[in-house]
Write a protein that binds this DNA or RNA. Structure first.
Lengths: 340, 340
DNA sequence: CTGAAAGCGCTTACAG
DNA sequence: CTGAAAGCGCTTACAG
């Protein structure tokens, strides 16, 4: 049979309410009573029931983590285990559990989130992506439920708490790095433009070009949909331009690997013929050929800080919205070269 | 204010129990009543409270998913997002949620699992790894709680439900493939020997050698701890043997990439000088250089079937333990060559 | 410092 | 086909 608070109370000769207070470690209970009750709990193998606790206390001690739908480039992307590690470390430090939602379509995600929130499965939510005009985010905001976004919200970013890198700035820097190496024909290979991160990075890229007086070419932008459909063709169409790029800014190491592979097949060498700089600094990037020059966006920290921020908001509901910027590291390796 | 079953009942002029039955879509309620109640639910924006439901019905509609601790080689490994995708597809199809546990030490995992189970946070558990003499697994089994393992349990495997590849067999096959290419000096580069998967694959490897009359050499085995500490040194010590291997069976594509990188640095070419065959067939492996010959272990299916199996066990408690074997695919690419 | 009582929002025999 | 009542295992004012 299941051991309840009543069983413990009876055996310890106290009221159930006292046992409850011992569990919560209330300062209003004497050490002596606490000791006795704890002994009985131990003896009986008592374990508090989460559901009952949640119902009575109106707190679930769980946070919801919402992954983007799998259409997002590369669900095989190590980004997710890594954020998750950051999230769970912070969550467990605070005795919170993680409730995971991974819809395969936007609607599925939306439904899962609404039922999670309205059904009080969780005390707060972390959105692991930011998409343009996202109805899930809109729902979260209008329902006034504690949530934080990993990424920059498309709208109302002054009213939403979020954790992000400074994507515009770092992409500008990275592009400048290529420009300083003498490159003028720099292409941008991005994820889906539905995501704010893509838009931000694209803007950083454009900014750098503008500052350097390099005109921006539409043909130099390639996005996820095209790559996913036919990565080979995507890069071919880029390299077959009259004025092919001599450098690439790629949004993810995984995409960079694929690009490099196709390029080599086409007889184009990295970095001798084309330079590549990328994002995420996956573990592998150190060992790829050539070793990838990449931006370490500190994925773990992104998750860790987002959780910390959420937990704060849960415990102090009128916490002001804040933006946390996670610094990045430029890891220079061997995929870029001075333009000849 | 929160809308409860009572509010709906009052407005619809029925008893709360009737509303409850409408939610459960009980056949004992007339269509007419159902319709009326549903309209009111819609109108009031009613959403069932999970905690209350769980408490009364003694079912949480959630499964716990236990990840191995991050010490496991490569938490950046795409294995996890991929199993998770399989798990969540199956779970959501059945209206189950996913409760994630990711301890960073064995003890943390153990504590999370016990509190999850004893505290009735979940209806069942999926263990995403199988480790030798694992106290978490032992706890699960002795507490008679529904659970299934992804991987082969170390002990009592006839009494535990699990989903696995036939690791012994496939590793034997893979090793034979290398033997057929003329290789005699074949090394095994594995994960941690704490995990059953490593042991099984090692056994498959040994079996193939034995059948071919090749004597097994201890120096030809390299394991995780050594690699993690110093991957470069690990491979160097292998290649500096009097009789260095001409082929490698590697447990994971990620490790294979690292090995290849070190080998090239040492001036040893893959596949000309050394052949490599590996496991997991990551998305990248198609694009790596050389394209990796790898075993696709069907990670998604592993997760999907494990969940199906668990859900069955939850709904029919006396379901017999079963073993489900997920077939694998041998993806031949260009990392192996005939021995010269 | 401790207890009796009400209540969190549901489900489910039981009765009709 | 529907309702009244008890109960799931906790927490938390309120009272002393």
């Amino acid at each position: 049979m299941i051991v309840t608070i009543k069983d413990v109370a009876k055996k310890a000769n106290v009221a159930p309410s006292t046992v409850s207070r011992v569990i919560a470690n209330s300062p209003r209970i004497s050490e002596k009573t606490k000791k006795k009750v704890r002994e009985v709990m131990e003896e009986l193998g008592y374990h508090p029931n989460f559901q009952a606790r949640s119902l009575a206390a109106k707190s679930t001690q769980a946070i919801g983590v919402i992954m983007p739908n799998s259409a997002y480039y590369a669900f095989q992307n190590p980004f997710f285990p890594e954020v998750l590690r950051g999230i769970s470390t912070s969550a467990h430090d605070n005795k919170y559990g993680i409730y995971l939602s991974t819809g395969s379509t936007e609607d599925e995600i939306y439904n899962e989130v609404t039922s999670m929130v309205l059904g009080r499965r969780v005390d707060g939510v972390i959105l692991l992506y930011s998409r343009i005009n996202d109805k899930t985010m809109n729902f979260l905001q209008s329902s006034n439920f504690p949530f934080v976004v990993v990424g920059r919200p498309d709208e109302h970013d002054e009213r939403i708490s979020y954790v992000d890198n400074d994507n515009i700035f770092i992409t500008k820097q990275v592009t400048n790095y290529l420009i300083d190496l003498g490159h003028q024909n720099i292409a941008f290979v991005g994820g889906s433009t539905d995501f704010v991160v893509t838009v931000d990075r694209l803007n950083g890229y454009k900014l750098a070009l503008k500052d350097a007086g390099i005109s921006f070419k539409k043909e130099y932008m390639v996005f996820e949909d095209f790559i996913k459909e036919n990565g080979r063709k995507a890069i071919e169409s880029l390299m077959n331009l009259n004025d092919p790029p001599t450098a690439l800014v790629t949004q993810d190491d995984l995409i960079a690997y694929e690009m490099i592979s196709h390029l080599e097949d086409m007889g184009i060498r990295v970095p001798q013929d084309i330079s590549i700089v990328s994002f995420n600094n996956l573990m592998l990037s150190e060992h790829s050929k050539p070793p990838l020059t990449s931006i370490d966006i500190c994925i773990y920290q992104l998750g860790f800080e987002a959780t910390k921020c959420l937990l704060e908001k849960i415990s102090i509901p009128d916490t002001l919205p804040k933006r946390i910027t996670i610094p990045t590291k430029f890891i220079e390796r061997k995929s870029c070269e001075q333009k000849k």
